[in-house]
Design a protein around this nucleic acid. Structure first.
Lengths: 346, 346
DNA sequence: TTGAAAGCGGTACCAC
DNA sequence: GTGGTACCGCTTTCAA
């Protein structure tokens, strides 16, 4: 479909000018006489001239589009990240194209294919749970596509990274739970090969260590699809509560895992926080409206989007200058609410 | 940025063929000899040939992209609609480009501009609260851009519409509240000029009428930004609870309004459902986890996306055939929970 | 069956 | 300052 009204050639013919003159006039080129410029601009305005961005992109080899790859759009955390990205991108005149992986590496590759065939100027990516390395990204990186990782970063490419303080968040949350007297804190999280998972585990372990306690490995559960499938979270919980010593607290690694755990506990008649405490990395918009109100580690999603987009666009626009890969770690915020506060000490 | 490896011309030169032959071979054109075709395909595969979609689009005047315009991405209802759209679009090989209006007509126009300059093949749009007519869409429609309205439809264009049964949903919810003994049901909703608002009001009024009661007009509150701004919802509630006869129930028209109302009631110490009942059009993923569990009218968001995308792509692919504008009204589902069930009758 | 060439809409180099 | 023209990568008509 092409909704083009008139082209540069039409203007040139109508005004008896050459294509190049019209093109220059339209771009406000310095050396075009005032009268000609005005004539062109007036005609263009009057006939509602609109440049064909496809043609421009083809010629200029840039599209003023940035591609975003993430696992899923309907997600309170990622939704806000997207808004952060858009706020920066649109202010700089970039269109944002979002693609979803649904946690599949296959889809991730397809998305990259689609995006790059359309000549995006840069890429923001939060990898899928299935992604173990950056092999599929290397060809693009080598050809000069600016890439910035956000949220779920993946090592191996000398480029910018923007993420939350996963280690710190997990540490604080675990410490809080231990302080509240919970001792058997189950951690439901993503596959170990993800850097994010490792970082959170590190914080979790550090809190135990600093409390002089040892981690029970059977309380660590990894969901292959990062909680995207409710059944995998339920299975993890089934296993946890079948243990000789079941957990007295659940630390979930994402919105989806937190919610599925919540529903599970509710359904199986466990009282929160008396029987089991529940807390998670979560950006629900109203965690205080849950019953009980939910303790969360909140990430600055909007800021993450802004920073990632900012770094990406900077790289795009200083294309040929070398740069130092930056790693931005955004602070997270522990919000303690009723779901982890027991009145009596165990 | 262009991540192109090799072009058709490269292949042609390497194989000593003409551009056109290569182009045809790549497309599997019928009249290309088997050996030539295989040679081209093999070479292309080996050298990782990837077509330049921009060039194809420029030439073919179609881009296999569809544009989506909606108010905001981080929204549980619209997020699911997007997924519905993507499920159909990607299965048919279309890339989806989503743009947000944030409830501003100005942004809506800009988004349309961006999308059409990039030659989208079709448009899915849920208009902003500020949008009163389709004037800004007419030029595109007239030039042949297939358009399908979804969710917030806007009359005036002979095209497909996909929406929820707003009238029925509001009717059922209001009837339910009346049945529960609530008499002064406040309705917090969007501006009256939106068709959706009118339809819901119609259902609301019908329920009152059928119950033999008359509607108190001072219980109807319209939020100019559709609830996007928390303050406007709070102001509406302030006004409602300053009335000589304050409401005993709140019927909110969207997720955002429902949530803001919930927070307001909580903050001002009103008990739900004893002091005030609360219910709304809402697609929260876990309304049962709220305290109290929330009565909702749930829309089939995913289906809405699927149907809208399906109709659009059908129109795109049968471009020149005439068509009958269809209006699809999807059923909604009333889910009664604790927030509207009082134990004692007033 | 294959090739030559024009053209999609714009840009930019090179002349004048 | 302005014009002529080649070219971005691909498609397609027309000829051979």
């Amino acid at each position: 479909m092409n909704i083009q009204s008139i082209t540069i050639k039409d203007i040139a013919k109508a005004l008896n000018l050459s294509y190049s003159t019209v093109s220059r006039a339209l771009k406000g080129s310095y050396q075009i006489s005032e009268p000609v410029r005005e004539k062109v601009l007036a005609y263009a305005r009057e006939h509602n001239y609109r440049p064909n961005l496809l043609a421009q992109s083809l010629k200029n080899k840039n599209s003023r589009c940035i591609g975003v790859v993430l696992c899923t759009i309907p997600n309170s955390f990622l939704g806000e990240v997207i808004n952060g990205i858009e706020s920066i991108a649109s202010s700089k005149g970039y269109l944002v194209i979002i693609t979803q992986t649904n946690e599949s590496l296959e889809n991730e590759k397809k998305a990259l294919d689609q995006l790059t065939m359309r000549a995006i100027d840069g890429l923001l990516i939060s990898v899928s749970t299935e992604t173990r390395d950056v092999k599929h990204l290397e060809p693009y990186h080598e050809r000069g596509l600016p890439i910035v990782f956000f949220d779920r970063i993946c090592a191996g490419l000398p480029t910018h990274l923007v993420q939350s303080d996963n280690e710190g968040g997990a540490f604080e949350l675990t410490k809080h739970l231990l302080d509240q007297g919970y001792k058997r804190i189950a951690h439901i999280t993503s596959p170990t090969h993800l850097a994010m998972t490792q970082e959170r585990l590190k914080g979790y372990r550090r809190a135990y260590r600093e409390a002089g306690l040892s981690v029970k490995e059977d309380l660590l559960k990894h969901c292959a699809h990062g909680g995207a499938i409710v059944a995998e979270v339920e299975q993890a919980l089934d296993e946890l509560f079948s243990l000789p010593e079941p957990p007295d607290a659940i630390l979930a690694a994402s919105d989806r895992m937190t919610q599925s755990s919540f529903q599970y506990l509710r359904r199986t008649g466990k009282n929160i926080p008396e029987d089991v405490a529940l807390a998670g990395f979560s950006n629900f918009s109203a965690p205080e409206l849950f019953s009980p109100a939910l303790t969360t580690v909140v990430q600055d999603a909007f800021e993450m989007g802004k920073r990632a987009a900012g770094l990406l666009i900077e790289r795009i626009e200083k294309k040929h200058k070398p740069f130092d890969p930056e790693k931005i770690v955004l602070p997270v915020q522990l919000q303690v609410r009723a779901s982890t506060q027991q009145t009596i000490t165990k």
